[in-house]
């Protein structure tokens, strides 16, 4: 914001001004904090994951087919987000918006599946209050789900701005940052898939 005057057009759109470069670096640092946050939640889950207190266990509630669908949806959405950024680098606004919308649709599909999963758990008598295992499971999954929800809302704002203002260094930077965020959520999900679902089914 302070030295916005200097524009270096040799760089990709989102890196052209100093302020945008700082915003992107700041977001990377923020993702560092997010990694610590999720690492802590994984740690908590790792400590509590066998404390069933007489309630349902992993095997009683996990439905692997639904989890596979969620995984495919989210992994694909990360891929389409990649294409969207690729279109942005080609200065193709239309392509960018189309791929962003596809990404969000996949994200919404993931969320729909996750909410269904929670409803299913509740029907099985597995709620957040049942046991330490379920408390940590719900909070870990819920935190990730809340991030996805926030990401969808945020990306929608960015799409509106892209439609209104077209591709400028500022809108490009905003798009790039939401892209980083989306990939990050995908990485977190891979860890959830491995350490929560696969491990739970094997154990």
């Amino acid at each position: 914001m302070i030295m916005s005057a200097k524009v270096d057009t040799s760089l990709p759109l989102e890196y052209q001004t100093e302020q945008d470069r700082m915003n992107i670096l700041g977001f990377w640092v923020f993702l560092g904090a997010e990694i610590v946050l999720f690492a802590t939640l994984f740690g908590v889950y790792g400590v509590l994951y066998e404390r069933f207190a007489g309630g349902p266990t992993h095997k009683d509630i996990f439905v692997i087919k639904d989890v596979m669908i969620q995984t495919v949806l989210l992994l694909t959405s990360s891929f389409t987000m990649g294409i969207a950024i690729f279109e942005m680098r080609r200065h193709n606004l239309k392509g960018l918006i189309i791929w962003l919308v596809i990404t969000l649709a996949l994200g919404a599909g993931f969320l729909f599946m996750e909410i269904n999963e929670f409803i299913h758990y509740a029907h099985e008598g597995a709620t957040m209050q049942t046991s330490a295992f379920l408390s940590s499971l719900f909070v870990l999954l819920g935190t990730h789900g809340a991030h996805v929800t926030l990401g969808i809302g945020w990306a929608t704002m960015v799409i509106i701005q892209l439609l209104k203002r077209g591709l400028t260094p500022t809108t490009a930077r905003k798009t790039f940052i939401i892209g980083l965020y989306w990939h990050f959520l995908d990485v977190v999900w891979i860890f959830i898939f491995t350490f929560v679902y696969l491990k739970g089914l094997v154990a």
């Binding site: 509590l48 069933f52 957040m128 408390s135």
Partner: peptide
């Protein structure tokens, strides 16, 4: 942030992260 969030869940919504009952630690 996480510790306080879990505390909030324990106190407000009856989860079992740090409680005596329900397998908390």
């Amino acid at each position: 942030t996480v510790a306080l969030a879990l505390m909030t869940f324990d106190r407000l919504y009856g989860t079992h992260f740090f409680t005596v009952s329900g397998g908390g630690m």
